[in-house]
């Protein structure tokens, strides 16, 4: 990227007069983390990612405003700090992945005990009637049938809703003609 000799070199930073080069091994920080770190600092500097994303990447760092109080060296160091920041974020995301999935399933499909049913719900084999008002044959999708024989209403009825306030009862059932009003 540059044939000049650096003015100063330490850790993974080579400092030149107008720019700094930060070497990042992709076995330590993958490209996604490098991109996130650079994106986070793009209001302070310019970042050019070079090198091999499978081996070693070299990030060229330049100050946006040469009169700013932040020095080029500080910006390069801040980039290193951001690499740690996003690496930790990815580690935490991997650790909490299972919990997030359980919470999402519970939110979408009902109570935690219904999660087993949610897992058995094959999202890849949904019929077209689930996403549109008509089936492939042009018939109306009144019965809300998924995958031949499984009725959406049956699935919903099988959920054990906890409704102590009675707010899940439809208005028609509660105040409709049958109730005498």
């Amino acid at each position: 990227m540059s044939d000049e000799k650096p003015l100063q070199s330490f850790a993974n930073i080579d400092l030149f007069a107008d720019f700094a080069l930060v070497k990042v091994n992709s076995k330590i920080f993958p490209l996604s983390i490098v991109v996130s770190a650079a994106y986070d600092l793009m209001d302070k500097g310019y970042f050019v990612i070079d090198g091999d994303p499978e081996k070693e990447m070299i990030v060229e760092v330049r100050l946006q405003d040469s009169n700013s109080q932040t020095s080029l060296l500080e910006l390069a160091k801040e980039f290193n700090n951001q690499l740690i920041n996003y690496a930790f974020y990815e580690i935490q995301s991997a650790r909490t992945k299972g919990v997030r999935e359980v919470i999402t399933r519970a939110a979408l499909f009902g109570q935690p005990e219904d999660v087993e049913m949610a897992e058995s719900f094959d999202t890849d084999n949904r019929s077209s009637c689930e996403v549109c008002d008509t089936t492939e044959n042009g018939d109306n999708c009144e019965s809300s049938t998924i995958n031949d024989g499984i009725d959406v209403d049956e699935i919903v009825d099988s959920f054990d809703f906890d409704d102590p306030e009675g707010i899940a009862i439809p208005w028609d059932e509660k105040y409709g003609k049958s109730s005498g009003e």
Binding site: F10, A11, N12, I13, K23, V24, N25, K27, I28, F29, K77, E78, N80, N81, L83, I84, A87
Partner: peptide, 15 residues
């Protein structure tokens, strides 16, 4: 100011 660099996740340096 902190940095991690080196060969991989078993052989690396911390600054």
């Amino acid at each position: 100011w902190v940095a991690i660099y080196g060969e991989d996740q078993t052989n690396f340096k911390v600054y």
